[in-house]
Amino acid sequence: MSCLETIQAYGLRSIGIGERLLPKADFTLCQQFTLIGSGLIWNIYFAVLALMIGFFLANAVALGKSARAPWLRRPANWFILVFRGSPLFIQFFLAYFIFLRLKQAGALPWLTSAQAGALLVLVLNTAAYSAEIFYGALRSVPKGEVEAADAYGMTGWTRFTRVIWPTSMRLAWPAYTNEAIFLFHATTLVFFSGFPAWQQRGDALYYANYFADKTFNPFVAYPIVAFYFICLTLVITGIFGLVNKRLNRHLPQEKRARIKLRPQYIR
């Protein structure tokens, strides 16, 4: 099989298009690159959706945490504590068994699949981490800006949407970039926890692990995943850097906050 044929057969294997059977022996480099690359579709799917949904949830939670009313503040605090204080790995397991129970009880059966269930866990997890970031940013909005808004006669919602929130986003953005990168890395955990890979449709690490198990040789498959992830991390940094530029476009060049990679490693 030539490399082009391999790509046609396995390029979309992870979403169930193409050859049914995975290669069994005598893996070529091309096969490994193609299959692991096709697994990457799931990593991107999880990361993009979780970030997009989690962003809104995180803003809501951050607002809740900074609210004065205890009935808003307490739940937000607990939410953040639970999801930041426990390993994501355990959260996946726990969530899977909860969803399994629900399925047995006849409710929401689709949550046991990784596509929906793991996504939900990732959304909640990233919402908790980002909420902490946004909360910190909300608290460090310069007082002068708020006072200026007051002086202009802005109050309540207008003041929030026009002054406080944009500034807090500006402040939070570098930290949020890191959160995005590490959420992306965390997506590799999905198929190693409770969630099963249906019909061997897994993510990049799932296929890399498949190859490493079959060949008992970690020196090919894992570096390939690492390569893919480094490339995509650069892409994320690029996109978030563009947004950062746009957020800070009114500031003089030297005052703009640079995004510094400060890895948070594992969650």
């Binding site: 890395h185 965390a186 590799t188 955990l189 190693f192 690490l205 890399a208 692990n209 490493a212 008992f216 970690p218 020196f219 894992y222 995943v225 690492a226 992830f229 480094i230 991390t233 650069l234 990679l261 890895p263 490693y265 594992i266």
Partner: peptide
């Protein structure tokens, strides 16, 4: 090396690599 690569890959990689 810790940047840009998910650490779980290191975990899976090093255990076999050290052994071998």
């Amino acid at each position: 090396i810790v940047r840009g690569v998910p650490d779980i890959i290191f975990f899976l990689f090093f255990v076999i690599a050290i052994d071998q």
